[in-house]
Design a protein around this nucleic acid. Structure first.
Lengths: 343, 343
DNA sequence: CTGTTAGCGCCTTCAC
DNA sequence: GTGAAGGCGCTAACAG
């Protein structure tokens, strides 16, 4: 059915090996025969069999990536960026979704290993641990490098590249305090998860610099970090009190929930209350007022993650196993000076 | 490095073949040795080499999918659904993005063939054609079945599964006319592309049934079908006239742009103007008012697409090469009775 | 420069 | 029930 090296070798009356070399543009083979081979290949509609090549070379030329759920915009953004970078680097990408389930994550790794992936990138499930999981051990066994994007792990030996959310949140809160805000609510997720706790650190630091105390009641914890939850806690919040002049949500989707809820209650943004989000995703453009947000530089982060991974794949040792990329503030209309009458 | 069949055969003092059979749970081999083999495999941390297996069996056990851009929520939804269905069917999924570029699409197909994919699913780029493209011919050459999801092609020989958007739009418009609306604006994309033209047919039919004429000025064409464009044309629209009482956008993201723009202008939804979207994506929940939308039953559609593909892979001939799946209306608050004073 | 030869790891007859 | 042998398509020495 499929035409093989042998077919084109036979047709040209030369050896398979020569054809192979010619197809790979090896300089050993004469330009003339190269051209003949390429022409014959095209004529016979030859498609190299990567499976056979993979077996022969013991290289799959593909790297794998695991994301929790592609229906979450942020992860989709990451996957897309990774796809681009990996392809540009001449590798194939094999993507899989873990559904935030460590067991599925492990299964995925198993099939990755079976496919002889050369390296794996992962946005890990959010169950942090201080121990090497079994799949991490398996990867090590097979000498397959692993780089996390947005890590939750605090184990030194585990490489990761992540956006500096602590710094990013600091910048956002500083932006608000510079505008005169002193009573700022932070809406995040579970306080024990790094993606929230790191942000809280940035929040506290920014307030501290202005001598503003951190009040526990301004730190809201959500069960999940999506629109509905944010809308819900905002509704509860404004039912309880209205002394705050700004709200910082841990991502844009939540910020959108906050804004819509405020507006529905007749609270104007940013005139009455300023709102900021994070990640500069599409959500930051979907309200009547553009949302001030932090751009995590997903492209840059992914580029660095792939670079680091490929370094290890090539057997080099990256100088720095942990990289924090710098985010940039995107100022839109949802944040403004504190309301005069509040003072 | 990696442990192979041979390693475990050697350890157990039996032949490779037996180990292979045992690992594949072949009934020929004695239960006892099977157990021994499985234990040894686990002990030696054996991971089957799918590359070798693929070469030997000439089956990759994976199917490929091409979507235009995973950053578009609707496509991300599709990819996720496909991933689930394909995995459940015991196949691996290899995903790739075309960026809506036919050339990239072709490259992807090339690598798919090289990887000896057993079938391909595709959400095609939106450049319709009546001819078989070169990659379609290549797939045929290699006997690799192809099924489109949401097809633009009108070639009989090309299989596809798509949501019935004509019917869905009909249902939405009928919903509006039943509520008393007669002056309904439809905001779509390029009129020559099936995803818009089919919807227009549904629109016209629903109006026709109530004896309402179709006015050209109520059919708005957008260059791209996203939020910003929708917001823009809505702004122009309300600058020009305000006689309409309802707006139907071709997707939820656009409907959201419409609603936000209307509200910013002080036009209430649904009191003054009703708005409906399509696809029942996350966007339909992101405004102050929930958006009435059509659920395209992505899961069902994807299930059928995979079923059809696997049928062909197995050499069966699906009875019906073209399937239209039925959508369901999701009624939310953005649509209501026509404003009394308009009459 | 080109051809020969041996595998890569696994599966699949076919004997025993 | 189990073993031996050949081959999947390609690459990688090594000869010539």
């Amino acid at each position: 059915m499929a035409t093989t090296l042998k077919d084109i070798a036979k047709k040209l009356g030369i050896s398979e090996a020569t054809v192979s070399l010619a197809l790979n543009n090896n300089s050993l083979v004469n330009e003339k025969t190269k051209k003949r081979v390429h022409e014959a290949a095209k004529e016979l509609k030859y498609f190299p069999n990567m499976v056979a090549k993979g077996l022969a070379t013991n290289k799959s030329n593909t790297i794998g990536i695991i994301v929790p759920d592609i229906n979450i915009v942020f992860y989709a953004n990451i996957l897309r960026a990774i796809d681009e970078v990996v392809n540009r680097a001449g590798y194939s990408l094999l993507a899989a979704m873990s559904n935030n389930d460590p067991q599925i994550e492990e299964e995925i790794i198993r099939t990755f290993i079976s496919k002889r992936i050369e390296g794996v990138l992962a946005v890990p499930t959010n169950k942090p641990t201080k121990f090497l999981t079994s799949y991490q051990k398996a990867l090590r066994e097979y000498n397959i490098p692993l780089v996390y994007i947005t890590s939750l792990y605090t184990i030194d030996e585990i490489r990761y590249v992540m956006g500096d959310i602590r710094e990013g949140t600091y910048m956002l809160i500083k932006h608000l305090t510079d505008l005169g805000h002193r009573n700022i609510v932070f809406i995040g997720g579970n306080r024990t998860v790094p993606t929230t706790s790191l942000r809280r650190e940035g929040y506290s630091r920014a307030l501290g610099e202005k001598g503003i105390p951190v009040f526990a009641e301004n730190l809201i914890e959500c069960e999940d970090i999506h629109y509905d939850q944010a809308a819900l806690v905002t509704e509860e919040l404004i039912g309880r009190r209205r002394d705050f002049t700004a709200i910082c949500a841990m991502n844009d989707e939540m910020a959108l929930g906050v804004i819509n809820t405020l507006q529905k209650a007749g609270i104007r943004v940013p005139e009455d209350v300023s709102v900021v989000g994070y990640d500069n995703t599409i959500f930051s453009k979907l309200s009547m007022v553009g949302i001030t947000s932090m751009d995590s530089d997903i492209e840059g982060t992914c580029q660095q993650a792939v670079d680091m991974l490929l370094q290890v794949v090539r057997g080099e040792i990256p100088e720095e196993p942990h990289i924090m990329t710098k985010p940039a503030m995107i100022k839109r209309q949802s944040s403004g000076p504190v309301k005069e009458t509040e003072n």
